[in-house]
Nucleic acid binder design. Structure first.
Ligand SMILES: NC(=O)c1ccc[n+]([C@@H]2O[C@H](COP(=O)([O-])OP(=O)(O)OC[C@H]3O[C@@H](n4cnc5c(N)ncnc54)[C@H](O)[C@@H]3O)[C@@H](O)[C@H]2O)c1
Ligand SMILES: NC(=O)c1ccc[n+]([C@@H]2O[C@H](COP(=O)([O-])OP(=O)(O)OC[C@H]3O[C@@H](n4cnc5c(N)ncnc54)[C@H](O)[C@@H]3O)[C@@H](O)[C@H]2O)c1
Lengths: 243, 243
DNA sequence: CGCGATTTGTGCACGCCTTCACAAGCGCCT
DNA sequence: AGGCGCTTGTGAAGGCGTGCACAAATCGCG
């Protein structure tokens, strides 16, 4: 799944961890906690049990996760909601409202460009790009679609570090290369293909068909189980995508 | 992250595994292999090394995964492409071209409804539902938007086992309940919330903001590392979303 | 027919992650 | 002030997943 892995500062006693060395699994859950916490604003404090339920995880896991970031819960009371939100947002780097660009303003790109879940959760879409001359100049929720050739210039102007790819798979690698050249160091890829990027650039992929295929497997499995004489009803399963 | 987990037929020696008991991690990768294989049709055979590269994984991992499903590679030669495709599609239950319904034909729903990656990778969208009267009757790529109240009837008629939720978060739980009542046993949820479902129902979630937040964390981390005197360029990272 | 080149299948060790279970800490009430 | 109930933080154990490294198997060629 990973072409290269993050190094965990192996044998580097000189440079003390400037940043809490969180397990990947924990990082992937922090956004869940954050979302749950935002739904709970108004409460002053919350117990690990309650927050875990709201985030759909085990309470022990939640406590261990939070302990990793040196968080301050109070025994007998719980966690301070506002403080915890602040902590997690800091760790995730959301206090900076990072600039994001979107490449490929087609079917999916239109939906993404208009999605307010971006804005409300720490990001600003600051630029839309496409290669199709017919689309250049189009206005989408306050932004003008620009030509992909302007990417490098705009990325520098706006200090864009995160790019979203919503082009067909055939164009994705080329777009990724352009993004990297433009200084983008994190890519969210919706095209169903593997991207090759230099070290230091992070890529996350969302592939809808893969999600359905995994569900399909479980359907197939459930069907073959219940068809069995000794078969019993299988247990349900809820998984987050990403991690 | 998981409310309930699949049981792996614990202490159930009577009912032999009717279905290969694949590790969850392997299942999540099979669709990747499948996609890579489809891009390679024309070749007769392929080595684990080459296929692994195309799928973006380690070759040892690929071999172990394939060995789990009792696959037939030939030493010194590689894997038969056509046979492997057939095997994986069978395991994933894709030979049945499963019927899928989509609830919530808004911004995102429109993009999904028109997405041909559904059809080409083993699924048929057979119904679209919405609650907004203004949307009922709308035609989208050959399908008519129906009222959510017709869900149970249509689901039964078309034997729909998989449902996609693309409604606002506030409506998602209610929709999930309706899907479950209608007999749907697998749900792909795009709404940013935790769904509660009975045992036997599988839920997978796609949350775009979470993906960005994870990328944001790595940006934050990279920035704090390079700012360090002893800091060095971090290693790149490529992860699939979904396990 | 035998040999060498190639590639699969897997035993093994290691590390990560999860989960349990409980001691330690905190606040509240008497 | 003291005790009690509640909740956190964590040690330890177990399970899962990964990747190395190599034996076993197969093919092609001389
Ligand atoms: N539509 C969906 O619901 C959906 C869902 C999941 C994944 N995807 C994937 O997302 C991607 C986009 O899907 P879509 O349905 O929006 O496709 P689309 O064809 O509607 O849009 C693609 C857009 O990318 C632009 N483009 C092509 N080459 C480009 C380049 N080199 N640089 C910049 N822009 C370029 C095109 O002009 C077009 O506007 C595809 O890879 C698809 O598989 C789509
Ligand atoms: N737009 C995106 O790019 C995007 C990306 C990621 C996630 N999401 C999530 O996907 C969901 C949909 O997003 P959207 O932008 O399409 O929103 P939207 O408001 O455009 O569409 C929501 C649709 O759901 C329908 N709906 C509401 N209640 C319903 C009910 N009870 N039963 C059936 N239909 C109902 C509405 O009528 C509307 O058509 C949201 O939860 C959003 O957070 C959207």
């Amino acid at each position: 799944m990973s072409q290269q892995r993050h190094e965990s500062t192996p044998g580097n006693p000189g440079a003390a961890a400037a940043f809490p060395d969180l397990p990947e699994a924990t990082i992937a859950r922090l956004p869940e906690y954050l979302r749950a916490l935002h739904n709970l604003e108004g409460s002053d404090t919350i117990s690990s049990e309650a927050l875990a339920a709201a985030a759909g995880v085990n309470s022990a896991k939640l406590r261990k996760d939070l302990s990793h970031l040196g968080s301050y819960g109070t025994r007998g009371v719980g966690y301070d909601v506002a403080l915890l939100i602040e902590q997690i947002e800091y760790i995730l780097g959301l206090d900076q409202r990072r600039a994001v660009c979107l490449v490929g303003v087609g079917n999916l790109g239109h939906a993404l460009a208009g999605y307010d879940g971006f804005a409300s959760r720490g990001f600003r879409i600051v630029a839309l790009f496409d290669a199709d001359p017919a689309r250049i100049g189009e206005q989408i929720s306050g932004l003008t679609v620009r030509h992909i050739d302007d990417l490098a210039r705009v990325a520098a102007e706006e200090s864009i570090a995160i790019g979203v790819i919503a082009t067909p798979a055939g164009a994705a690698q080329a777009v990724a290369d352009q993004l990297v050249t433009a200084g983008v160091t994190s890519i969210l890829n919706f095209a169903p293909c593997v991207l090759s990027v230099p070290a230091g650039v992070d890529v996350r992929k969302v592939d809808l068909a893969i999600e359905l295929q995994i569900l399909s497997f479980h359907e197939h499995r459930k069907a073959s189980l219940t068809a069995l004489p000794g078969g019993r009803a299988p247990t349900g399963n809820q998984e987050a995508v990403g991690s």
